[in-house]
Design a binder for these strands. Structure first.
Lengths: 205, 205
DNA sequence: TTGATTTATTGAACACTGTTTAATTATATT
DNA sequence: AATATAATTAAACAGTGTTCAATAAATCAA
């Protein structure tokens, strides 16, 4: 049975090669401008081969989408060693924004692009597991904050969604070039300052 | 000179017809799935004609982009009759989110899609006028809030960007289907509740 | 009204896209 | 070595944005 094992392994290898090429290409040129033929050229195979490893283009994007969440989770996990929940919440916020600005292509796919969510719904992937996991980290931290006496009279779920919305807004408006309306003196630091501003709102000292 | 006037008028008419067709089509099918040929079919002209009225596809999107801002401004202007600045700020927030959820296609083009901003930068349209105007309304209102004693020790610009980010986040995560991670009991009302939650943060009563 | 000129419009072409499929090559099994 | 299975390709299809020479229509000058 060693042969079929090796074949299985080789299949996985080519699949990984395709994913890596796709990843590199769309970090370099953007998701929209990366074509199947571009990927095929990069790995020096014919375009058709890709359809033996992925159902369609959106399945490739979905795979990268998952990789992105695993990257983000890897960065979030260490923060759970921060015992003060408010400090942890702030650290998560900064971490989120930093991730977005350092990996705009990935962030785009994870939180802005339509495609990967379409795929999730089409395939009936009922629970968007990676996303739920990340959101749950936020939910838990906010629940901890409430237990610690912060956010009087607030519910966890709307609060978590609002905090997420704020950091997503800060990052995505920047990524999608909507910050031109901001006073030029603030352009370079506006995301950072906006984040600090959120800190002051959720934790008036 | 009446003839050239009429020709000018007819040219404007066809240009408006193209824009209307484009507008209808992309509200119906989405921006990405609306092609030049679709628009040409709808107005019963050949595809080539569109390039006599618009430089390229992104110029059409930019024109609709501007229409969107004029729609939004029309909804914002009346709010300046609200004299209490905090009440006005809250009303602007609700108005913004409502606009986004009622016109997701337009909102997409105005604040999420890459294309129209690309065009603005390529063409050297130095000051994104429509956007600046809308943002300035927010800036003014927040400055009024500070004068009225709200937001102690905060700067206008970061605060305005943060508030904008929050409402943009609330709306865009919903529009781009990222709310599936939210507890199903809250799904339908999460944007509304998130907004209320923001109200409590900026105006702790 | 005719002929010349300008303008509006078309249709075909180009290079690209995602995707499918029959044919081909390579590998594994008997 | 012959057969069966799997991997890979090349070609095709229908679509995309865009350009451009050819045509049709409208205007101008005589």
């Amino acid at each position: 049975m060693g042969i079929s094992d090796r074949k299985e392994r080789e299949k996985e290898e080519l699949k990984a090669t395709i994913l890596k090429a796709a990843h590199d290409l769309f970090l370099e040129k953007g998701v929209d401008k990366t074509s199947i033929r571009n990927i095929a050229d990069k790995i020096e195979y014919s375009p058709g081969i890709i359809y033996h490893y992925f159902k369609d283009k959106s399945e490739i994007f979905h795979a990268l989408h998952q990789q992105g969440f695993s990257m983000m989770n890897d960065r979030m996990v260490p923060l759970f060693s921060v015992s003060d929940p408010m400090e942890r919440l702030k650290a998560m916020g900064r971490n989120y924004v930093d991730f977005a600005l350092q990996n705009p292509g990935m962030y785009d796919l994870m939180f802005i692009k339509v495609t990967p969510m379409d795929h999730i719904q089409d395939e009936g992937i009922e629970k968007w597991k990676e996303g739920s996991q990340t959101f749950n980290g936020l939910r838990t931290t906010i629940a901890d904050c409430i237990k610690a006496g912060y956010f009087k009279d607030q519910e966890v779920e709307p609060l978590a969604y609002m905090v997420w919305s704020t950091v997503h807004g800060l990052a995505s408006l920047k990524i999608r070039n909507r910050c031109e309306v901001v006073n030029p003196d603030y352009q370079n630091t506006i995301v950072e300052q906006g984040l600090e501003c959120m800190y002051d709102m959720i934790d008036p000292s």
